[in-house]
Every structure is written in structure tokens, then in C-alpha cells.
Design a protein around this nucleic acid. Structure first.
Length: 898
RNA sequence: GCGGGAUUAGCUCAGUUGGUAGAGCGACUCGUUUACACCGAGUAUGUCGGCGGUUCGAGUCCGUCAUCCCGUACCA
């Protein structure tokens, strides 16, 4: 009967449609178009990364927005690309180098190493792009960018030079977050504080002037003792005031250090005296500056001890050295006690090791355009959704610190600074040399290398990856030296979709860059997605192994199923707990749509998508009802899209198709497709089916692009060679120019029939007659139209018939239901277990009496009647009346049994 | 410490001007009639975290407490 297989098989369909869209260049944005622009730039994934569920959610949302915008008549640019991901990528290549060749990057040198990274990028790069294609993403791949493209890199260098010329970029020796594994400085944002169960060591320093008298200090880091240059106490602390200015003995290497006063010290904590190690603690560094103290660095860059004066510790790892230092103190009789102590320790985001506060020469940026940026978000020129993230943004902007932008890596944008060659030796020797020591002529800061390169040496560091990402919205659209059509048409972009975890890393910085370099906001709306967690609420991660491979899911359930399953459940503004059943539901849903269409084709493969409801004389209530519901759906979706309520869009699409179209409409009109049905009935029903389904597929398309495209063609709703994805949504409703009174009447009748059907099915089930088809119903009263719809009602209920009989006198105990389609009875013919039935009725009566009591109490309340909206009171009255009728009926039935 | 969020059916979550508490999954009972068992019909299940307040009426507004998450700043 039908050539279609029983179950929908998405895989091949999805792949072939994606290829067809690509071949027809459906995704390519035309800057010359007269249509209004709509644009998104993709948050560039790591070039060598692979797709995880977070990407799926994020990019599905973007695809939905892009496809919806096309349907609304916009010229859409969804600009894709990848990020070079400095540390992440370099780490991977270094690991490979170590595992396969037993070498470090320094062994093979900068040039050879970079060659290897590019090789790695060529080999592993772009996997994620393929995966995004599998998901159905409608990015304009002809404009794909990479943060290390030559044109893009020019932007990065120019921006650096501009900011340098503004005086916002500076070089200096500062306390930075140092990663002892990656051997580079990190920004504050790349440091993750973690609670640690540490120990607090109490120890004592002897006063030089008063032998035998000790000053007690508490520390969590005894291994930095060699770098101690003072002990600080609070000037208001009466216990210690007398010691300020005196000297104490540092045990090893043995020396005398002063006691200083500083407000920073909390008298309540520990002993109230703090050992000062300016080289290894941010607060100590500041105290050191205030008190003009020496800085003694006792670590190597890898955080092993660098202190030849204390051979016991020299060369040891910092944590090994900690234990050893404690033992030494104990042996010297200087250790007093050890307490358990919980504190926060910063960890490197990438390498996941404790970062080491370390003084080093780095490049810093004072953020530009901070005021405009804070204001744009606070005032809503850029709207954050959910709005509460605006507050997080504001908090961060408030306490903003200069950004350490240099990284001691090789993979990335090299800092565009050159030093005059003859000065370089000095620079290398004396790490303390600052720019102040170089005259203007010795320094070249520019996007272009010096014209006489042989006389210059370029700075060895590269820039933080985010220093290139923050230019993404415009550096992808426009080369430095040309004003492209793309940027004119599509910039500023419309929406940005990303995770809230990178507000600081990326979003806020892009706004600053937008203001500084383009003079305006880079995007109008920012939608923050849910963070996906597993069933237990744990974050998904590779190490936990709780992150399913989206590709496997797509092979099993289809890309459409995966997309829909996630979108329907992803809450707005809260974390998403992922469970595979969601995806399974998505797959089942696709199958449901497919089968509805398959059913339709059994009645003929000719399309009736041109059917006009307004011109049809034979529309029945069910037709009007489903047409009206489809129009309502379109309207509801419009509202939900307007507020970015994607889960509601999904839920509405689901409920309409499954609950309204299949469960109600299709069941009600099935009879029209039987052989014995009239031509007119058949034509009308097929017409309504096609018109509604065509519109529905159109509305569903952004969520499930492949199956909707497939079915639209198969069902003949669009011409071969045309694409649903390029078709604009009609502005007319399906019931355009149909009389509103007719629509209303039809919908009411349909609702009455559906409601009655449900109630009668309940009756059957209650009396354990659900499977019996020979049950008959009698309508003692009912609306005029009841007889015309009686057969359909009977069909829906699974009954032999519903007959109208005004003179019907039910035997006592005959169950019935009062519905909008009349007072309906189900004669039992004495087939019921009397005792069981009595018990059931008693229970029922009790329940309803309770409801009646509640309702009466409410209506008896004068204030309720006076204050509540009239329609609310009316509803309550109707409800009470219904309960009372039902109650009377039940009482009659009960007495009929005894 | 400060800021944000969460707490609704066994599970995952909806519930947008305060007006009889909903869906999906799972459980249970029926059922393969011209689509679909990736299905249909039905049943059961909730002092909406606790306490107080505003109101005729609170899951919804206010206060407070509890538990749990997430940011962020710190005391070494």
C-alpha cells in the first residue's frame, strides 16, 4: 500500500539533505541582499576539539535562531570558525612529542615545534566542524574563519599596537598566576579556586634583641620560609606593638628579619603574626611593597625549590619540600603545633595543578571602554538572557583587574613587539629591565614588523588566546585593510549564544573590544545556555567519562531527535540534567510525524496543499478545530520565540502534533478516508490534513530541519528542487477569511465531542468494559448537532453507537456523564459485579462531596463573590452545578443497586 | 563574607499579570480496529522544603529558617 518503511530511518535522510543544502548554497549569506539582516557569530570551538553535548545544545539554539530568521524573511549570516586554543593545543602536541619521540618542545626548537602544531591542526582540526555539519548547522561555511588566519592575526597585532599607543598595554614585573606545569603566566580568569584540606603550621621566631623570647607565627606554606623577609603584625594589636621595629631570627637560611606593622594582618587569625614572603604570595607582595622589603624568589619556574643555601630543600618539589621543612622546624624545636585548616587554593584551569603566585615580567592590559561596557549591559542596550547574568557581569566589571595577556607559550599570536638587537642581550640578562629602560627608538610596537628586521628581535611570548577571541565578532567579517560588505550588512550582530561560564573570558571582553575598535556594541542580545549535567547532577567531563558522544546519539536517534529532545527539556536559565530518554523521545516524536504522513499517503499521494478552507463548504468541526489550533500554535510560537523560551516552543510543537493532530483530529476524521466515505468528505479531510501538515512542518523546521524538509518534499508540499528551509513563513493564517462565528461554533462542537469521548471512555474503563466494542450509549438530551456527530463520537469511544432518545428512562443505577454534548448514559444490562460497584460508588460519592463542600464554601464567601473577577466566579458556579448533578446521579445509581 | 540560583508526583522538569496543581518517563490495568508498540485507551501518585505574613483566596507576592548547587572575594 505504501512504499514507506514502517519506522522513520533518519540517518541517510539527514546526510543527504545536508548535502543538498550545501550544494544549493542555502546557507550562504549575501551582503548585497535587500532583506533585513540577521547575524550570529559562532562561539569558536577549539580547533582540535571534539563535539560534546554542550556544543550540541549551544549550536542547536543558534541553528534554530538562524533558520527561524530565514523563515521570517531575513538575510542570515551565521559565521562559523574555530579557535587556536593556545594552551590546550600546545599541551596536546607537547604530550605527543614526549610520548612518541621522548622530546620536549625546547629540544626541537620553536620553529620545528610550531611546524608540528600546524601538522597536528591539519590532522585533527576540523573534526568538530564535520560534527556540527552532522547536527544540521546552517553555518555559512564559505566564510569559515580561524583565529590564526593571516588576516585575523593582523587584527590581533594591530589591536595590541593601538592599545599600546593608548598607554593601556604595558610591560611590567608583577605578581602573576604562574602555572608550574604549563610554565606560563595565566589571567585571573584561568585560575579556579578550590577548597583544600590543608594544615596550619604554628612556629616561632626568636627575637634577636631578647634571646629566649619568641614571636609565634602561623603559616600554611612552611616551604616558602626561605623567602621570608619580615614578620608583620597589626599596628593596633597590643600584644605585638612592642616588637615592631625589632628583628627576629629566620631559621633557614639563617638570617635576621624585621618585624613590621601592616593593617592587612588580621589579629584574630592564627597567632596574629604573619610571615612575609613577597615573592610567593600576593598579599605578602603588597605588604612588601608598602614596607619596602626585599623580594626573595626561592622557586624555580616549575615550583621546585631554588635555594642552594639550604641543601636539604634545594631542588625538591614544593609539596615534598613542605614536609621536609616541617621536619626541620620540628628538629630545631621551633614547631609549636599543627592544625587542620580548610583554605582556598587557586588551580590552573587547564593543567589542574595549584598555581604559584610568582613575580615575573609580563604584558598587561588596562581594559578599554569599561564604562561603556558596564553601561551597555546595565541599561539593556545589550540584553542578557536570563537577565540575572547582567548582575554577574556588573560584579566582575566592578572589581576588574588588569589583564595579563602574555603567555610563555609558542602556539599563538606572537606579541608584536620588537627590541633593538643590541639591547636584547641586556634584556635577557636582566629580567628586571623594563620598557622604561628602553628609549623609544629601541622599541618597535606595530602590526607590521620593522623594515630592517636584521636589527631587531621580537618578544618571545605569545598572547592569551582570549586576546584574539575578543575580536571575533568583527575580525571575522572584515579584513584590516578593507571595509567589507559583510561588516556593513551584518555588523553589529543580532544574537550571541554561549555558556554563562565564559561571561568574563569572552562576552564582556568582546563588548569592550566592540566599543574600542568599532565604536559600538558587537551584538544586541546574549542568550546564555544551560550547563549540561549528567543524571546525578555532575558536570560532564571527559575524565568522569559521563559525557556521551553526540555522534553516537545521532547515529542511534537521528540529529533531529537529539536536537528536539534536548531543546524540549532544556530549561531556561537553569542547568539541564541530561538523560538519554530525552533523546529517545525526540526520536519517537520524529517517528510519530512520519507515521502521520505515512497514514495520509495510504489515501493517495496527490498533494492538496492548495486546499482553501475558506472556499470549502463541507468543513466539519474537527477540521475547523485543527485549523484553528494550528493558527494558535503559530501565534504561541511567535511569543515564545520573542522571549527565547525554546523549551516552550518545543513543548508546543510536541503537544500540537501528538495531542491535537494525531490523537484527536486524525482519529476523528479517519472515517472520511474509508472507501465508503463520500468524495467530498475525503477531499475535505485530505485538504485539511495537507494544509495543516504543510504549515506544521514549516513551523517545526528550525527544530527538526531534516525530517521536515524530507516530508515536505515527499508529501508534495513544496516543489522538487525547492527547499523548505528557504521558504518564508506565510503571514496569513489558515483560517483567513473564514467567518469567526463559524470557527467558534466548530471548535466548540469539536471540543464537546472530544470531551465526551474522554468521559465515555472513562465510563467504559471504570466498568472494565474498555475492550468491549458492543457497548451502546444513549443521549437523553443534547445539542441539535449531536446526531450529526454521534457516529464520530462512537468511533472515538470504541462503541457500537450513540443514539439519541429524549424519552429514555434510565434504569436506576445506570452510569452516565454530563457533557457539553449532552446527558449520556451507558446501559449496563446487568453485567456488573454489584458489590464491587457499590463500594466504588461510595468512594466516588465521598470524593465529590468533598469537592462540593469546598466549592460551596468558596461561593458562600461574600468577599470572594465581591472581589473575584466575574468570569472566575462564573466558572466556580458552573463547576459546582456540575458536581451537584454528578452527585445526584451517583446517589441514584447507588440506590438503584441496593 | 558577598552575590546568584534551586527546593512541585518515584525520576526529569513545566507552571509569565495570585483564582479547582500539569507533561514526559517510570509503575499498574486494558488493547494490535486502515499510520505509528519508537503505538493507543485508561488508572494511581503531590500538607508545591519548613514556619510566619499580605489577601476573600498563595506553588505564584513579602519575610524568615533549612538543605543543596553555582559564581566571587578572602585569614596567612
Amino acid at each position: 500500500m505504501s512504499e514507506l518503511p514502517k519506522a522513520y530511518e533518519p540517518t541517510e535522510v539527514e546526510k543527504s539533505w545536508y548535502q543538498a543544502w550545501l550544494d544549493a548554497k542555502c546557507f550562504e549569506a549575501d551582503p548585497a541582499s535587500g532583506k533585513p539582516p540577521y547575524s550570529i557569530v559562532i562561539p569558536p570551538p577549539n580547533v582540535t576539539g571534539i563535539l560534546h553535548l554542550g556544543h550540541v545544545l549551544n549550536n542547536t539554539i543558534q541553528d534554530i535562531l538562524a533558520r527561524r530568521a530565514r523563515q521570517k524573511g531575513c538575510e542570515v549570516l551565521w559565521l562559523p570558525g574555530t579557535d587556536h586554543a593556545g594552551i590546550a593545543t600546545q599541551t596536546k602536541v607537547e604530550r605527543q612529542l614526549r610520548d612518541e619521540e621522548g622530546q620536549t618542545r625546547r629540544d626541537i626548537g620553536r620553529e620545528a615545534f610550531l611546524e608540528k602544531v600546524w601538522e597536528w591542526k591539519e590532522k585533527h582540526g576540523g573534526i568538530i566542524i564535520k560534527q556540527l555539519k552532522r547536527l544540521g548547522c546552517s553555518c555559512d561555511w564559505s566564510k569559515e574563519r580561524f583565529t590564526m588566519d593571516a588576516d585575523y592575526s593582523k587584527w590581533v597585532a594591530k589591536v595590541f599596537a593601538d592599545l599600546f599607543n593608548d598607554g593601556l598595554v604595558y610591560r611590567g614585573k608583577r605578581m602573576v598566576n604562574w602555572c608550574p606545569v604549563s610554565l606560563t603566566a595565566l589571567s585571573d580568569e584561568e585560575v579556579i579556586p578550590k577548597k583544600q584540606n590543608s594544615k596550619l603550621y604554628y612556629m616561632k621566631y626568636e627575637l634577636v634583641e631578647e634571646p629566649g623570647v619568641f614571636l609565634e607565627v602561623a603559616t600554611t606554606r612552611p616551604e616558602t620560609l626561605m623567602g621570608d623577609v619580615a614578620v608583620a603584625v597589626n599596628p593596633k594589636d597590643e600584644r605585638y606593638g612592642k616588637y615592631v621595629g625589632k628583628m627576629v631570627k629566620r631559621p633557614f637560611p639563617h638570617t635576621e628579619i624585621p618585624v613590621v606593622a601592616d593593617d592587612h594582618v588580621d589579629p584574630e587569625f592564627g597567632t596574629g603574626a604573619l610571615k612575609i614572603t613577597p615573592a610567593h604570595d600576593k598579599a605578602d607582595f603588597e605588604i612588601g611593597m608598602r614596607n619596602d622589603l626585599e623580594i626573595i624568589d626561592v622557586f624555580h619556574p616549575d615550583a621546585s625549590v631554588n635555594c642552594p643555601e639550604v641543601p636539604e630543600l634545594d631542588g625538591l618539589d614544593r609539596f615534598v619540600a613542605r614536609k621536609k621543612a616541617v621536619t626541620m622546624l620540628e628538629e630545631m624545636g621551633l614547631l609549636i603545633k599543627v592544625e587542620e585548616h580548610e583554605n582556598n587554593v587557586g588551580f590552573s584551569e587547564r593543567a589542574d595543578v595549584a598555581i604559584e603566585p610568582r613575580i615575573s615580567m609580563q604584558w598587561f592590559l588596562k581594559y578599554p571602554a569599561t564604562e561603556e561596557t558596564a553601561k551597555a549591559v546595565a541599561d539593556g542596550d545589550i540584553s542578557y538572557r536570563p537577565a540575572r547574568w547582567a548582575k554577574t557581569h556588573a560584579n566582575w566589571m566592578d572589581g576588574i583587574q588588569d589583564w595579563c595577556v602574555s603567555r610563555q607559550l609558542w602556539w599563538g599570536h606572537r606579541i608584536p613587539v620588537w627590541y633593538r638587537k643590541e639591547k636584547v642581550e641586556a634584556l635577557q640578562e636582566a629580567e628586571s629591565l623594563t620598557l622604561n629602560d628602553l628609549s623609544a627608538g629601541d622599541l618597535h610596537v606595530s602590526a607590521d614588523p620593522p623594515s630592517d628586521p636584521e636589527n631587531w628581535v621580537q618578544d618571545g611570548d605569545v598572547l592569551d588566546t582570549w586576546f584574539s577571541s575578543w575580536l571575533w565578532p568583527f575580525a571575522t567579517m572584515q579584513n584590516l585593510d578593507e571595509d567589507s560588505d559583510l561588516v556593513k550588512k551584518f555588523y553589529p550582530t543580532t544574537d550571541l549564544v554561549t555558556g554563562p561560564d565564559i561571561i568574563f573570558f569572552w562576552v564582556a571582553r568582546m563588548i569592550m573590544a566592540g566599543f574600542r575598535f568599532k565604536g559600538e556594541i558587537p551584538f544586541k542580545n546574549v542568550f546564555f545556555t544551560s550547563i549540561i549535567r549528567d543524571k546525578n547532577g555532575d558536570k560532564m567531563s571527559k575524565s568522569r567519562g559521563n559525557s556521551p558522544d553526540p555522534i553516537d546519539l545521532m547515529e542511534k536517534y537521528g540529529a533531529d531527535g537529539l536536537r528536539f529532545g534536548l531543546m524540549r527539556t532544556a530549561p531556561i536559565g537553569a542547568d539541564l540534567r541530561y538523560d538519554e530518554v530525552q533523546v529517545e523521545e525526540g526520536r519517537n516524536f520524529a517517528n510519530k510525524i512520519y507515521n502521520a504522513c505515512r497514514f495520509r499517503r495510504m489515501a493517495g499521494t496527490d498533494s492538496r496543499a492548495n486546499f482553501s478552507p475558506a472556499a470549502c463548504e463541507t468543513l466539519r468541526p474537527y477540521h475547523l478545530d485543527i485549523l484553528a489550533k494550528c493558527d494558535e500554535l503559530a501565534e504561541t510560537l511567535e511569543d515564545a520565540y520573542g522571549d527565547y523560551r525554546f523549551n516552550e516552543v518545543g513543548q508546543q510543537l510536541y503537544d500540537f502534533l501528538w495531542g491535537e493532530f494525531c490523537d484527536k483530529f486524525l482519529e476523528a476524521v479517519k472515517g472520511d478516508l474509508r472507501e465508503e466515505a463520500s468524495e467530498a468528505q475525503r477531499d475535505t479531510t485530505l485538504g485539511v490534513f495537507d494544509v495543516v501538515m504543510a504549515r506544521y512542518l514549516h513551523l517545526l523546521h528550525p527544530y527538526m530541519p531534516h525530517i521536515t524538509e524530507e516530508l515536505s518534499v515527499r508529501m508534495g508540499y513544496i516543489q522538487e528542487g525547492q527547499f523548505l528551509m528557504q521558504k518564508e513563513l506565510p503571514k496569513t493564517t489558515l483560517l483567513e477569511s473564514v467567518d469567526a462565528v463559524v470557527i467558534k461554533r466548530g471548535c466548540e462542537q469539536a471540543a464537546a465531542v472530544y470531551e465526551s469521548a474522554a468521559k465515555l471512555r472513562n465510563l467504559k474503563a471504570e466498568y472494565r468494559l474498555a475492550a468491549r466494542k458492543d457497548v451502546r450509549f444513549v443521549a437523553k438530551s443534547g445539542p441539535d448537532w449531536l446526531e450529526a456527530e454521534a457516529d464520530i463520537l462512537a468511533l472515538l469511544v470504541g462503541s457500537e453507537g450513540v443514539t439519541r432518545d429524549e424519552g429514555y428512562l434510565p434504569e436506576q443505577g445506570t452510569p452516565g456523564a454530563v457533557t457539553a454534548a449532552g446527558e449520556l448514559f451507558m446501559p449496563l444490562d446487568g453485567l456488573i459485579d454489584v458489590e464491587a460497584e457499590k463500594a466504588r460508588l461510595d468512594k466516588e460519592i465521598e470524593k465529590i462531596q468533598k469537592e462540593v463542600g469546598k466549592s460551596k464554601g468558596k461561593l458562600g464567601n461574600e468577599k470572594f463573590v465581591a472581589n473575584a473577577k466575574p468570569e472566575v466566579v462564573a466558572v466556580e458556579r458552573e463547576r459546582l452545578a456540575e458536581w451537584e448533578v454528578k452527585l445526584t446521579q451517583l446517589h441514584e445509581m447507588r440506590s438503584g443497586l441496593s
